[in-house]
Design a binder for these strands. Structure first.
Lengths: 149, 149
DNA sequence: ATTGCTGCAAAACGTTTGCACCTAT
DNA sequence: ATAGGTGCAAACGTTTTGCAGCAAT
């Protein structure tokens, strides 16, 4: 299930930065785009293994990094020492609220946030690259919460 | 070099949550408050070891978690799979800009940010606990940058 | 007296690395 | 032909755990 448009973006990027175009990298791209929601690098590796792919762990980690560099996916970190990725394909930018009890992740966007990072970077003498805005909170509805923990 | 005020806050907290008051925990508190800037849990452990303390790694990790719970220190995560802590003692709240090249960390505060997390939490049906706002950027002055890497 | 905390070491976890082979250029 | 990417397994660094002894309540 190949997304040709995304594949083209990746191909162009790889040429630009003089990295080789290999079938393994596109396998990882396909798998990453198929995910709805957030996933860890190792999850993706296991998933690929289960579908009989020969792609190695090293290649998965390496390729996810490349995909994040060309903005096809985003790297997220919710403070639990685990890198998560999510597809950017056809998604609007958003931030995350994480329940500290059950780990539930809710996405939101707020127009006020978007301009701040660039502005602050400039003011401090930096070129903005990306930002992360995470809210840690607790489900008000206790019954709905704790489910996962 | 004990900070009695902070120690009192910690003591009260420990009683509240029915945790024992042990000398080791106050050793960790003292060491944490003495740090200016950010530090990793293991850094603190090594530092304590070097000053002949008998406090174990497990206790350091455990205590830092407790100190974060009662807001004497903050737990930070800059996306590099390493938990960092920083003293909150007499500090105003602030956020961080991290250079993706050299790792330099700059603190800033912006009044616009502070109200947003609570407001969004309420809107989504959560009780706000904390938030993290990190900007990833590049030093404009290249000479000053790359020093560390 | 009784838990719970401690020190120690070892395990766990996600991630990165070293190496020999392979393949896109 | 040759850099560079790959698969594999083992190493890495941080964090967590299991356990026996100890000490705060």
């Amino acid at each position: 299930m190949r997304n040709e448009k995304a594949a083209e973006v990746f191909r162009t990027f790889l040429k630009q930065v003089k990295n080789r175009i290999t079938p393994e990298r596109f396998e990882v791209l396909d798998a990453a785009l198929e995910h709805h929601g957030h996933f860890g690098a190792d999850d993706l590796y296991v998933q690929l293994k289960n579908s009989k792919s020969k792609v190695s762990r090293a290649t998965v980690y390496n390729t996810l990094e490349l995909l994040a560099q060309c903005d096809l996916i985003s790297k997220r970190n919710f403070g639990d020492n685990l890198n998560r990725y999510e597809s950017n394909y056809k998604r609007q930018t958003h931030d995350h609220l994480i329940c500290v009890e059950c780990g539930k992740i809710v996405e939101f966007s707020d127009a006020r946030i978007s301009d701040i990072p660039k502005e602050i970077s400039e003011k401090l003498g930096f070129d903005m690259n990306s930002y992360s805005f995470n809210i840690f909170a607790r489900c008000k509805n206790e019954k709905e919460c704790k489910k996962r923990k």
